[in-house]
Design a protein around this nucleic acid. Structure first.
Ligand code: SF4
Ligand code: SF4
Lengths: 137, 137
DNA sequence: ATAAATCCGACAATAATTGTCGGTTTTATT
DNA sequence: AATAAAACCGACAATTATTGTCGGATTTAT
């Protein structure tokens, strides 16, 4: 049960953008990577995922870059984590994707994992990027 | 952010033992593996870890096997998860093991991950094996 | 026209997880 | 005493996931 470095990098990038928020404009991968000490090539993939998930917006070409798609207050951590950790269901029986585990009928664990996941999701959705940069949560 | 199958298997084995609780005596890897449809060789390694962590006790030799080391009520899920997921710190800066991340000083994410980890741990420690088999939590 | 950036997919390197195996030791039963 | 059933242990193989790199294509401000 770990957080991937991908997600950790992604969150730091998002925080970077949230902090720069007031100085409107776009911030390039290069800038962010340098400031956060992350491989630019890898960071690009990460940020690209976040952009596709709709939390960042991009500007191509010279002077381009990325910025938050919305005010930091309206970007919840759940969004960041979901975008980067992928289909993050704890157990397959909760994924809703066809395949049911052979033990499903007699499995007492199922309800527990479900509740665990709910707890977790609700916490992640209760914290926004703004909360983080203001250190209030 | 996934639960490893190791942990899922381990929990199911623990639940198995908790359910059989009243019929005192030991239950072999073979039995558990068959009932839960898990590779016996793999399950052995998993159960061995749990035994070393002190939540199971073992009896060697013929008619031997495993049982819970304590009443199900006093085995919390946190114990199971910790034993099997290993050193499960979300971020290295929280591991307390020397190495500090280069970004540590200016990292706004740190507090968040810490709080997240606490939430998680406190939930896991609030649920016992008994709660699970009685489906009350 | 140029340079700076996003965008995209393929791929390589590394690490972690999952699973297998062969043997040793212990112990209840016969 | 012999046997069989089990835990115990470490090495290793197979598979999968993560992390990271690269080369080029496209877009756009200057
Ligand atoms: S074993 Fe239980 S919790 Fe795991 S996938 Fe199957 S039904 Fe779900
Ligand atoms: S980047 Fe921040 S949260 Fe991650 S290890 Fe470093 S100090 Fe901790």
């Amino acid at each position: 049960m770990k957080i991937s470095t991908k997600t950790k990098y992604g969150l730091r990038a998002a925080i970077y953008l949230a902090e720069k928020g007031k100085e409107q404009g776009f911030h390039s991968i290069k800038q962010i990577a340098k400031s956060e000490n992350i491989s630019p090539d890898y960071l690009e993939k990460i940020i690209s995922k976040m952009e596709k998930a709709g939390m960042l917006k991009s500007q191509k070409g010279a002077k381009g870059g990325y910025s938050l798609a919305r005010p930091a207050k309206r970007i919840k951590l759940g969004e960041v984590v979901n975008a980067l950790e992928g289909d993050n269901y704890f157990v397959q029986c909760l994924s809703g994707k066809g395949k049911v585990c052979a033990q499903c009928k007699k499995c007492a664990a199922q309800n527990f994992w479900q509740k665990f996941q709910e707890k977790l999701d609700s916490f992640l959705d209760s914290v926004s990027l703004e909360d983080i940069i203001k250190n209030k949560f």
